[in-house]
């Protein structure tokens, strides 16, 4: 099989911009909800914009939860983006309590208006790298800016899994996660100009190995 990245299609958000970013890097990608296509891919991206509960519901309906578990067991590279990053966690309190994929231990919690200026956080914020050796951030200078849009953030239980931190108002939170073959960003690399493109390049390179 020729190399390709599977972008999981579960009806949550702008998948095309991720697709175009990967194409821009001369790699192949498919937007798919086909279990076999996802399992056979060289790397998998779990994107997502929207509400946590809806997203889990769609993943369940499409029978994608066991597939994601298998990808992790098989040590295939998995990249969660924005909501896709939050879904990796054990639970979220977005509009009620919801169980997540539990691939990373921890919870997803809301910004509080008393601690930040505006909700959602929309715009470019910087990332302080705690682990600059992680493959995902190769060639990314410390404190580079990325584009964020979110009202909730994740709080991993195991602090070793934090690759990068971002400060919004009085809150410092995890914006890049790395755990074995799983990586994830709260920001949108496909909307973060050259350093965002570099992140995809790093992911693709890792998938080629």
């Amino acid at each position: 099989m020729p190399f390709y990245i599977a972008i999981i299609d579960y009806e949550m958000g702008n998948l095309k911009s991720i697709f175009k970013c990967i194409k821009h890097l001369n790699a192949d990608a498919i937007i798919t909800d086909d279990l076999k296509e996802i399992l056979e891919a060289d790397g998998v991206i779990l994107p997502g914009v929207g509400a946590f509960g809806d997203a889990m519901k769609h993943l369940k309906e499409k029978n994608l939860i066991p597939v994601l578990n298998q990808i992790v067991i098989k040590k295939k590279p998995l990249f969660g983006i924005c909501l896709g990053q939050q879904l990796l966690f054990s639970r979220s309190s977005e509009m009620g309590e919801h169980k997540g994929l539990s691939l990373v231990e921890g919870e997803v919690i809301p910004f509080e208006i008393s601690k930040v200026e505006k909700i959602p956080q929309i715009g470019w914020n910087s990332v302080r790298l705690l682990d600059s050796d992680n493959f995902l951030v190769e060639g990314i200078p410390n404190h580079s800016y990325f584009y964020f849009v979110h009202s909730f953030y994740s709080n991993p239980k195991n602090k070793d899994e934090i690759i990068g931190l971002t400060t919004y108002g009085d809150v410092e939170y995890c914006s890049i996660i790395g755990k074995d073959n799983i990586v994830a960003t709260q920001f949108h690399p496909e909307k973060s100009s050259k350093y965002g493109i570099q992140i995809y390049k790093n992911f693709i390179n890792y998938c080629r190995k």
């Binding site: 715009g123 470019w124 404190h143 964020f148 400060t167 919004y168």
Partner: peptide, 8 residues
């Protein structure tokens, strides 16, 4: 370094 202001 906080959230930046945007130029559009």
């Amino acid at each position: 370094m906080p959230l930046t202001k945007r130029i559009i």
